[in-house]
Design a protein around this nucleic acid. Structure first.
Lengths: 134, 134
DNA sequence: CTGTCTGCAAATGGTTTGCACCATA
DNA sequence: TATGGTGCAAACCATTTGCAGACAG
């Protein structure tokens, strides 16, 4: 469902949100584009980027842009942490509730007004562990 | 000091490490390049990138590549957290010891072998707070 | 000497943008 | 029917890379 504060509810925008919510793979813009073209062959990559950006700014989806390379997008906006495989770059959700970071009771932030944090775990996914027999 | 496991100790490499350790601003590659050119006008940006990558891989410096945009580099490899200003993109160190993330006693990592994590705080720096009078 | 490194410039690749047409509200 | 959105392609910009000559060990 798209909230009413979106100016227009285009076919493209609805489809982008629908497909992003359907997958659990935290796709890149290009990856989602490939999926979308199966149902709407003429959709453009520019439109995908424009809508992902807009949906992200409205808090309807989540852009995962830590670490370099391609940004990834998550249709699940609930607070949860991510695990990235350092070999295949796959991103999975950390199961269970998010790790609480309350600043550890820290008072001194050098005058910053702290708005939030980003936490990402990295490691080796099951598939890459098996393949590398480590 | 450059450790001996570096294949060659070029003037460029020594200068890059020296200047990066001198500044406390977590510069981008282009920012560091501008500083370096004051002392070595013919140094190339490609050389800066190549050396920053090499020094990072050997753990001699730290590449801060969370969040999109330009990567930033830190000559201080001690474990410490960072604070990013969402307005001016400046990065500062979080004063004091790093926030401990032990996984919160979590056992279930979906089969991942967890190697580490990255934690970044974001907020508004003193200068931007003043300028925006928030 | 010799194999690594440099400067230069061109290539790369993800993302953004200008524009004319389209379609939603 | 007014405007925001779309498709297309070109532009952008941080980073990488190929190459011929330079230089550290």
């Amino acid at each position: 469902m798209i909230s009413s504060n979106l100016h227009r509810n285009t076919r493209q925008r609805k489809l982008i949100l629908e497909e992003l919510r359907k997958v659990k793979t935290h796709p890149t813009a290009a990856g989602l584009y490939a999926i979308l073209r199966r149902r709407m062959p003429k959709i453009s990559l520019g439109t995908v980027y424009r809508n992902l950006e807009l949906l992200n700014q409205r808090g309807i989806i989540q852009k995962l842009d830590f670490s370099s390379g391609e940004a990834r997008y998550d249709g699940n906006v609930e607070d949860h942490d991510h695990l990235r495989c350092v070999y295949c770059m796959k991103i999975d959700d950390v199961p269970g509730p998010p790790i609480a970071i309350k600043g550890g009771g820290k008072e001194d932030w050098s005058g910053y007004k702290v708005l939030g944090h980003r936490l990402e775990f990295f490691g080796v996914c099951p598939r890459c562990r098996r393949r590398r027999a480590d």
